[in-house]
Computed example of a mutant assay.
Amino acid sequence: MKKLLFVAVAAAFLAGCQSDSQTDRALVGGGLGAATGAIIGAAAGGGAGPALAGAAIGAAGGAIVGAATTPKNCVAYDRYGNPYRVVCP
């Protein structure tokens, strides 16, 4: 029970690390995916093998989703030449 609480607290702290960097989001997504996959793998299989497999699958999936969901920010200019950020099309 204490391990599950520790993982939940760690996940909450990692989720708070929001960043617009694609690398940062891939790392956080991979970490959260690995933790979640390890918990599900251990609960489903009851051993180290399924937990490691779940962690590997979760890490890969989380990294892909984290990198793919990074918002793309572009710079546009108003009629006075002042730059501002907009979402890229």
Rank of each mutant, 00 (worst) to 15 (best):
K3T: 15
L4S: 15
F6S: 08
V7H: 06
V7R: 03
A8V: 10
A10F: 14
A11W: 10
A11R: 09
A11V: 14
A12S: 07
L14H: 03
A15Y: 10
C17L: 15
C17Y: 13
S19P: 02
S19W: 04
S19H: 08
S21C: 11
S21W: 08
S21G: 14
D24T: 14
D24V: 13
D24C: 10
L27I: 15
L27H: 07
V28E: 02
G31I: 12
A35L: 15
T36C: 08
G37V: 01
G37L: 08
I39L: 15
I39R: 11
G41A: 02
G41N: 05
G41I: 00
A42G: 13
A42P: 00
G45L: 05
G47I: 04
A51N: 04
A53F: 09
G54L: 11
G54C: 07
I57A: 14
G58M: 05
G61H: 01
A63G: 15
I64Q: 09
G66N: 09
G66D: 07
A68E: 09
T69P: 00
T69A: 01
T69G: 01
T70H: 01
T70D: 02
T70E: 04
P71M: 11
K72D: 07
N73P: 00
N73R: 15
A76Q: 10
A76S: 12
Y77F: 12
Y77M: 04
D78N: 15
Y80F: 12
G81D: 01
P83Y: 05
V86A: 03
V86D: 00
V87W: 12
P89I: 08
